[in-house]
Design a protein around this nucleic acid. Sequence first.
DNA 1: TATGAATGAGGATTCATTCAT
DNA 2: CATGAATGAATCCTCATTCAT
Lengths: 191, 191, 191, 191
Amino acid sequence: MDAAQAVFLGKGYQLTTVDDIAARSGLSVGALYRYFPTKSDIMLTLVEQRLGRTPELLHRLTAEIEGPWERLSRCVEVFVSALRVRHPSTGRLLLVAWGEVLQDNTVRQGLLRRFSGLIDYLASVIQEGVSTGEFRSDANVTALASMLLSLADGVTLYWSAGAPEIDLHGMRSVVLAMLRTYLNPVPIREE
Amino acid sequence: MDAAQAVFLGKGYQLTTVDDIAARSGLSVGALYRYFPTKSDIMLTLVEQRLGRTPELLHRLTAEIEGPWERLSRCVEVFVSALRVRHPSTGRLLLVAWGEVLQDNTVRQGLLRRFSGLIDYLASVIQEGVSTGEFRSDANVTALASMLLSLADGVTLYWSAGAPEIDLHGMRSVVLAMLRTYLNPVPIREE
Amino acid sequence: MDAAQAVFLGKGYQLTTVDDIAARSGLSVGALYRYFPTKSDIMLTLVEQRLGRTPELLHRLTAEIEGPWERLSRCVEVFVSALRVRHPSTGRLLLVAWGEVLQDNTVRQGLLRRFSGLIDYLASVIQEGVSTGEFRSDANVTALASMLLSLADGVTLYWSAGAPEIDLHGMRSVVLAMLRTYLNPVPIREE
Amino acid sequence: MDAAQAVFLGKGYQLTTVDDIAARSGLSVGALYRYFPTKSDIMLTLVEQRLGRTPELLHRLTAEIEGPWERLSRCVEVFVSALRVRHPSTGRLLLVAWGEVLQDNTVRQGLLRRFSGLIDYLASVIQEGVSTGEFRSDANVTALASMLLSLADGVTLYWSAGAPEIDLHGMRSVVLAMLRTYLNPVPIREE
DNA sequence: TATGAATGAGGATTCATTCAT
DNA sequence: CATGAATGAATCCTCATTCAT
């Protein structure tokens, strides 16, 4: 049923009618309202299910990688492949959700929670590198993490809005290169 | 009159009524419709006036700086101070505009045009550095430019949505440091 | 089950949903519909059970009193104590029922039947007094009976709606005094 | 516009659609909502215009009559002729209003205000008779007034609901006779 | 026989847009 | 040129009633 996120992706939240969702889902309006007290709650649920779980998903997909650098670069990979292949619609959903941030506070909370969750995880990955001495010791861990996340979401927005110039692979290389030179001035070259 | 963008910033586009705008602007609804054929056009005009001019504004504020690195870092500075001090409401406007991307194609075009404009300028700045040999020669100029822009807009979104953890100054430092180490592996150290 | 009249008394007929009734009664909606074909029928049954039986109830409570005057004044007493102590909720139910009179013809019939029944009984009581010569011979029996009943229901309405100024006991005294002086100009004084 | 009370009288408040009112009034729904923020407010306005003014209307029609008894009996006359000839629809409106008492508190307040207003006036009329010695000195003025009013409204309800047995003229005579014998034990006989 | 999920017509309300004044 | 009342389609949500299990 939640797969009726399709409708949101097509027209955005406000232009989507509850009737649209009902039609698409095969349910009746009434049935829909049995499970979601409000149109807004459908959106919220979507935000929590599809977007709110991103932190733990990222964790699951990268936690077992050994070595902070490998894990960090894996995060970048995961992001790129999610955007392009795995969950392209999640990117569009993020776009829809951002659109509701000003008009719906629960959605806003949901997005901010996702933000915090991802920051925390990224920060922990970087912090580990710093602790083991693999990354430069003067790195501002939190700032770096929020930078990466803001970048990721900014890319997601443009990508999902269909910006033609976005060269995902080029950007991935640049980011990885920058991270490496910044975090690992010399040693990485030896490996 | 357009200063009635205030209303959009407060409630978002969809929740704002034409009457709201009229009331705030002191005009009558009828008068409003003399100048804008459609509610959507008010938004579009806003997007073009306030957001579409960003490229030339950035150009004006940084073009006279000498030296590619100085100019590039100046861009970062300009961005941070615009967000925090100069045009904080423009950040929120960007947020509102992103919200309409899926529902209003002209708004989408406006945003993408702004994107291209900014990319072009940033790319030209970087390209100059590469050409003069000040920046590493293998830099992917376009990818770097879109990375910076995506980052900037991602930060703008979270900042305008009120994400508490955003440490603008920390991020600025990190970005500058990363850019420097990446673009200028050795020479910068000599300066 | 019918004790779910409680819900009607709280919100009125229209604002009460069948689900409310089901919840309050402990039955399921389906079960409810096994016994009552329609929401309206629940109301109708209530009207008949609780309001329609008023005539025979009044009869039972006063028929054995000897003497027309005593019986008539007993009717007044019964009314007052029913309203205040015995069946205050029946008063509210009458209020609810009156509200449906225009929208539901069966309810209307029910109320009018109750009206006739009570008129008939009151008229018979008065008629007896006239026949035995205890009451003035020129009394308009029916008009007097409907007057008493209209008065009773008018009082019930205001009382059930929570009119603050209603002084039930004062009104009882006035009514009794008026009835006595009117029906029994002189003789009653001797008794 | 308010003449669209016709629709309420026909179907009752709840069964009447805002569209019904609009159609009947010749306005569009939107226009209706320019003047009344809510369906409920239409009703409330009706209650205040048509029912709330009853006290002052009664005052105007009877205040100039000389003599308390004449004025009191004039009140009864006015009531009867209003119900039968002058404002029969106001009677039905009262019926509709009573129906909303439990579901709409503002309507309830309106009715109670009307009640107080009428009580006050009737009480003042009676009190005058008591003061001049024309009425018995031990009369419970307030109780008598509320009795008369409850009676009037009770009659109105049954009359408006179409109770067939209601003999308005008979009741008027009975009430006047009762009032006279009660208030004026002896002197009236001289007239 | 009981359950309660499903139905979907219906209703109050909003709001972009028009147009007579 | 300005005004703001009027329009009415469109939308979210409710709830009496049904019916498969």
